[in-house]
Write a protein that binds this DNA or RNA. Sequence first.
DNA 1: GCAAAAGTGTTGTCCTTACACCCATGC
DNA 2: GCATGGGTGTAAGGACAACACTTTTGC
Lengths: 248, 248
Amino acid sequence: MTKKVTNSVFATHAPHLIKDAVKLIASYPKMPITVDCVIFGFEESELKVLLIRSDLEMYKGFWSLLGDNVKDNEELDTAAYRILKERTGMNDVYLDQVRAFSHPKRHPGGRVITLAYCSLLNIQHHELKIYANELHWHSFSSIKEMAFDHKEILDTCHTWLQKRIQEHPLGFNLLPDKFSLRELQNLYEAILGVSLDRRNFRKKFASMDLLIDVGEMEEDVPHRPGKLYKFNFDKYEKNKRKWIGIDF
Amino acid sequence: MTKKVTNSVFATHAPHLIKDAVKLIASYPKMPITVDCVIFGFEESELKVLLIRSDLEMYKGFWSLLGDNVKDNEELDTAAYRILKERTGMNDVYLDQVRAFSHPKRHPGGRVITLAYCSLLNIQHHELKIYANELHWHSFSSIKEMAFDHKEILDTCHTWLQKRIQEHPLGFNLLPDKFSLRELQNLYEAILGVSLDRRNFRKKFASMDLLIDVGEMEEDVPHRPGKLYKFNFDKYEKNKRKWIGIDF
DNA sequence: GCAAAAGTGTTGTCCTTACACCCATGC
DNA sequence: GCATGGGTGTAAGGACAACACTTTTGC
């Protein structure tokens, strides 16, 4: 097998040490990087996603994720938090990197690599104060088409969320501090797209012993009010499950 | 709340549509992107990782992951496969994106964002033919210090692998086509860092019914030879588990 | 015959699932 | 008093964990 000659700095058989790291880096192709945030919320028993209108004329009328370019010397996580803050005025939200999208033609303006971030936020706690580009919540299931490859990114993040929510108590970020078991179950059903047995669901959470009964009841409901709970984050942090088991 | 002025194209209250997408992209900061491959193997009941010597004088003597810059108009996955091929001569390997590392000071030559990829390959099947930069296999557990932030990347990929191998039959990529149940168990024990009950382990795989008895036995072992199996990829693909369950 | 690993079953416990009735509240 | 969802228990089945002895082979 012969070694292909490339423009890589590493593609040498008899390497010599490189003294000037700055020069090395300068020889690499450079490209713009963006971060796109998929922001999920939950309201009226529906999974929602926060979108804006695309700025680009060629995507006029299409919805887009909240994105922006990454600045020089800015960490990706920092960029994601910045974008959230700039676009929504919020900063105390859950946020996680999902993955990079790098198709060379994904942006009509040229090659741009984007990092998808997934955020979860509580619609009740965080009132939107910035409405540029018609920023608002959409029912997740109603989104069919989007600008760029944003539909693919959205779907990837949704799949990611479905998996994460079963392994980590992320869902509580989407609920008010105090919530009823029904709201919690509705959340899981909305995200997973399944219906769950109410008694088994309650038993499951009761046996985990991670919900604190706040001693209050629902109000203004047209039926028997349920108890309100909050999530015991401290206890969870102390007893995180270390899962060993083969299952595929 | 006031809106911070930024250099973002989106940071306008009354957006006007942008006609020239190319010009837009041109206004973004550009930065070099690299891909770093963590390549795991398994031999002599040990998890191994493929490393080279760093080319940089300031990391002289340190070990480094197999990495290279991403080319213009090259997809990240393509770059990862290219690097594997260039460095090892191999291309039929399992490979998956793990995540981006973006600390501004992670490379001494300046800002470089890297995407970590994790590969699994069978050491017996794939003989190394390219030995530039002292490319060779290391015992994973012996690696303490590395060039750049590569130890952090390596550890992240190891954690990723521990999780993946329990949910997907990735481990078979690290074994020969035909393997004994002991080899399979050694693999799981090496990656997870636990010891497993032999009878329960065998029962588990027997009940999954995804191993095909090839009708051959181990040879040249100094004890009773075990049966050899191969993995039934077709059957797995048809019956992939759709997991629903809350566990944290 | 000894060392080393192969191969094999049972039991108890726990978790999951399926399923039905009464209760509290608002209207 | 009726509609709506809150709240509860049990039984069966399946998965997992713990555990020991006999068998085959090489030396």
